[in-house]
Computed example of a mutant assay.
Amino acid sequence: MNTLQYRILMLLGVLALVLSVINALLFSSNREAQNEVSARAQYIQQSLQLEPLYQSLVKSLADLAARDGDTQLGELLAAQGISFSAAPATPSR
């Protein structure tokens, strides 16, 4: 085996080693990203299960603020992007 073949084989061996290390780093990074996406998906799924409860809570707070004229509660809801209007009072007979 001459020195040129030896150098080419050595270079290919080093290149293979470098590519193996890069592959391991990319695999690890990809696994971390997959775990993060999975955790976010689980959070979203759990949030969707609570949506009816949140809607009921917001509706109750808006009804309370409109009924009692509670401006602080109305401002709190508005700060969260929730707007409502007070229904006109129906006259009782």
Rank of each mutant, 00 (worst) to 15 (best):
T90S: 08
S38R: 03
L12C: 11
K59N: 10
D70I: 05
A79W: 03
A33H: 10
V14A: 04
A86V: 13
Q34K: 13
S29A: 07
S38Y: 04
R67K: 09
L12F: 12
L76S: 05
A78G: 11
Q49R: 15
T3I: 15
S92W: 03
I82G: 00
S60L: 04
L50N: 14
D70M: 03
P88V: 09
N30S: 13
P52W: 01
L17T: 13
E51R: 09
I22S: 05
A39G: 05
G13S: 11
D70C: 06
Q80L: 15
L73C: 07
A86H: 10
P91G: 02
L11S: 08
G81E: 02
Y6W: 11
S28K: 12
L76R: 05
S60N: 06
L4K: 07
S20F: 06
G69F: 10
P88D: 00
K59P: 01
R93C: 08
L77M: 06
A62N: 03
E51N: 10
Y43P: 01
S20L: 10
T71N: 03
S92P: 06
S56M: 08
Y43C: 04
L50R: 15
L26K: 08
A66W: 01
E36P: 01
T90E: 03
L11W: 06
S29K: 06
D70G: 05
L57R: 13
I44G: 04
